[in-house]
Design a protein around this nucleic acid. Structure first.
Length: 275
DNA sequence: CATCAACCTGATCA
DNA sequence: ATGATCAGGTTGA
């Protein structure tokens, strides 16, 4: 399995990975996993190889996927060359849905803070100072401690989500059987899940690789690179039509390149040299 | 279907 | 130092 850890774990599709030296520390399911990139693969502890392969979607043939989206678009083609080994993850359905409900209208840093505190306050200790992402029952049982997580208006949305899952009104497992349109439609029925979150969950949890989530970054990229502008549906449709059945991979490449570009331009803009 | 203000909170900027 | 603005959106009018 060819995978580049840095772009895969560091580009914001999953929010719980932190790089400590050359080791990526995080949580996969209930495993406190540590992963390190070596010359010829991965070195890992705290989890199993099968769990790792599942999480990294080892069955995705990057060669096929990259060449498909590259053949459709020159810009993405050059990004693919610059960023080999970036993979879409397969995150646990419940966790992914809950974290993306929390990840609305906040910057990356704050999203990380919110999710960390939710795990710390409501999840279970899994060793190495890490905690699992809380189950719906964990959240409902610890509901009196949730204020300390400072989720703002996301708090009620998270509680409602936990409640409908606990009540069996929404079954994250059942959505695995659905195709992309049905999965998306079902998710959109949940309070707090709009088109962007629905597409993220479709892509990062349910493996609908044709999903093309449009966030603020992608919106900027599409305008800058392709001169396309418009509302959510228009931009998402553009992405799916242009990049095809692996539009989600193209989206991640565009997203990742925007991070690189913006961090570069910031570094050259001057004016932010503290001390 | 497009537009728009309001919404928790914490960081950044003027 | 203190107020405005913004940040990986969603909702309801």
């Amino acid at each position: 399995m060819d995978v580049a850890l840095d772009p895969t774990l560091g580009c914001g599709q999953a929010h719980r990975w932190r790089k400590n030296g050359d080791v990526w520390e995080g949580v996969i399911g209930n495993d406190a996993a540590d992963i390190r990139q070596t010359e010829d693969g991965l070195e890992f502890s705290g989890t199993s190889e099968s769990a790792l392969k599942h999480y990294f979607r080892a069955e995705d043939d990057l060669k096929v996927i990259y060449s498909d989206i590259s053949s459709r678009d020159n810009h993405v083609s050059s990004l693919a060359v610059m960023c080999p080994g970036m993979r879409i993850l397969r995150q646990p359905a419940w966790e992914c849905t809950a974290t993306y409900i929390l990840a609305t209208n906040a910057n990356v840093k704050r999203i990380g803070c919110m999710i960390d505190s939710v795990c710390r306050e409501l999840g279970r200790d899994i060793g190495k100072g890490r905690a699992s992402f809380p189950s719906p029952a964990d959240i409902l049982e610890g509901i009196d401690r949730i204020d300390s997580c400072r989720l703002g208006y996301r708090k009620d949305r998270l509680i409602m989500l936990a409640q409908i899952v606990e009540d069996g009104i929404l079954d994250p497992e059942a959505l695995k059987e659905m195709d992309y349109p049905e999965c998306r439609r079902t998710l959109l029925g949940v309070t707090g899940i709009g088109p962007k979150v629905a597409d993220c969950v479709c892509l990062f949890a349910y493996g609908h690789l044709e999903a093309f989530p449009v966030d603020a970054r992608i919106s900027r990229s599409l305008e800058k690179v392709y001169g396309v502008r418009g509302g959510y549906d228009r931009l998402a449709a553009f992405g799916r039509e242009r990049f095809g059945s692996y539009a989600g991979y193209a989206q991640e490449l565009l997203y990742h390149s925007d991070i690189i570009m913006r961090s570069r331009s910031q570094a050259h803009s001057g004016g932010e040299h503290p001390i």
